[in-house]
Nucleic acid binder design. Structure first.
Lengths: 329, 329
DNA sequence: TGCCGTTGCGCAAACGATTTCAGGCGCATC
DNA sequence: GATGCGCCTGAAATCGTTTGCGCAACGGCA
């Protein structure tokens, strides 16, 4: 059915070997022959069978991507970046969604590993031990989590929180709440760390609330405790939680930012679309995806580079309408 | 490096052929031998090389998915459904994002087609002619668009609009605006069709505004013309536009739903999270993805079924806080 | 003229699995 | 006791590429 290298060879009057060389290493073949082969290939619409090539070269020209939940608005941006960069480099991309299930994650890594040259793990849920084990067997890059010296792209969570706290204290806030994400999440731990350091340095009080699920309902649930804590500002683990806070504040008739300031984290698209628009710590999600693939491709070319393959991406505070000076300032 | 069928054969003291049979057609091999092979395979952690298998069987056990823009909140749900169903059926999934570029779409279909057994095209942008061409060469299912008798999963757009109009006219609205999506979009055309029929049947006036880009800014831009049209209710092509409307109404101090009712389409997650929460025509996105894969798998098993492979999925009106009776009712 | 290096190309062996074909063995049948 | 039939297994061909090796032709140099 499909056109193979033999068809091209016949059409061009040469052997399959020559076709192969003409297309992949043209300097090994006479210009005229090369041209003839190329023309035949183009006419027939030939393109090599990647499976067959992979069989002999050992390279599949595929990358794998494992994501905990595509529905989480944090991920599409990252996936877009990964996909775009992979395509530029002529790699196809396998996608798997684990539905937040660490067991499924392990299983998928195992299955996908054999069909790809490398894996991108987006906010992996699995244990450090498992991650190290897999990393020893397959080229792999983590996004949004760091484990030892394993290759990873992360965001400057600590500094991001410093930016948020600086913004609030500059406005005059002295008592700030934090609505925490899952305790097991690496990025939550980092954010808490940054937050404690920054509030301590600024001499502001920090009230930690939660943890809650990093979802809208988590924010809704956290809103009342936040108000009860007598703070003038609240920082959420992520934007989705912040949106839940806004919603509940609105329902209770609490004016944002007049009565309380709200800051999110991530800068998902919705953050700019709600009322009041959400001040948030922006993460370069698409860059993260691209950087991850870059790292992985580098690793594939030169596995020795392994030790030096970590990068932290800067954050940017997006000041919008959900923050202002505290009420009685 | 990796374990091949030969390693297993050696370990079990049989030939590679027997290993293959023991694992894929056990009834052709003596129970005892079969058991021995299975044990060796398990011990060595063998799993067959899919590329090699694909080379000889002609099946890749891969499906391809092409999406115009993962950032559009409509798609993640669909992709999740596709991914889940594909995995259940032991297919891996290639993902490609075209960034809304029809040329890239064509290109990607061509490239992916050779690495997969079938393709899922999500809201394809390419021309009918091209689609027919590809469909003749590759098993393929469209989502959210219908072209002739090509396999497709669609939503009941017409009936969805009837649900929306019925809701509004029951509340007493007599003059309704529609903010149109792209003229080239199949679903926009269907929705307009349903809208015209439903308003005509109900004796309500319909004011068409736009088309605008199916994005937040499109809705923001359409808000003022909507107000100028002197309507008591507005239906948007999709939720994202509706959110833009809400935002601009809010900014202009127009109360929703007191002064104007707003209805969206799709029921993206954000629709329930904004204030006021958005009444919208809900689409079963995950089911759509699953149904698409089901169709495709059916097609792969029995290509003769081709002619009968279309399905329309029902919509459900989600009544929330953005609609009520018109002001002077 | 003889030799050598270069260039261009074909042959054939891989890669890892599946599948066809044929053979060996045991058992029942005539 | 020969024949035939099933059952189980191994050898070998095959899928579409890539690539090491060898051969032929050709030009340059002594």
């Amino acid at each position: 059915m499909a056109i193979t290298i033999k068809d091209v060879a016949r059409a061009a009057g040469v052997s399959p070997s020559t076709v192969c060389r003409a297309l992949s290493t043209p300097n090994l073949v006479r210009d005229e022959t090369c041209e003839r082969v190329r023309r035949s290939a183009a006419e027939l619409g030939y393109s090599p069978n990647r499976a067959a090539r992979g069989l002999i070269t050992g390279r599949t020209a595929n990358l794998g991507l494992i994501v905990p939940d595509l529905g989480n608005p944090f991920f599409p941006g990252v996936v877009k970046g990964i996909q775009a960069r992979a395509r530029e480099a002529d790699y196809a991309l396998f996608l798997a969604d684990t539905d937040e299930d660490p067991a499924a994650e392990t299983q998928l890594v195992r299955t996908l590993a054999k069909q790809v040259d490398g894996l991108v793990l987006c906010s992996p849920r699995m244990s450090e031990q498992e991650l190290r084990g897999f990393a020893a067997q397959t080229p792999l890059v983590m996004l949004n989590r760091r484990v030892g010296r394993l290759p990873a792209i992360t965001f400057a969570n600590v500094n991001g929180m410093r930016q948020a706290v600086t913004h609030l204290t500059a406005l005059g806030h002295r008592r700030i709440a934090y609505v925490a994400g899952p305790r097991t999440s690496w990025s939550n731990r980092e954010r808490v760390r940054g937050l404690r350091a920054a509030t301590a340095a600024a001499g502001a009080a920090l009230v930690e609330i939660g943890p809650v699920l990093p979802q809208f309902d988590g924010g809704v649930a956290a809103a009342d405790p936040v108000l009860a804590a007598g703070v003038t500002a609240v920082i959420a683990y992520n934007d989705v939680i912040a949106l839940g806070l806004l919603s509940r504040f609105n329902a209770r008739g609490i004016a944002v930012p007049a009565e309380i300031s709200v800051i999110g984290f991530d800068d998902i698209p919705m953050a700019a679309m709600v009322h009041p628009s959400l001040t948030t710590v922006g993460l370069p999600m698409e860059s993260c995806g691209r950087a991850g693939v870059d790292l992985l491709l580098g690793l594939l070319q030169d596995p020795a580079r392994f030790g030096t393959t970590r990068r932290e991406l800067g954050t940017q505070l997006m000041v919008r309408d959900s923050t202002t000076a505290p009420p009685n300032a």
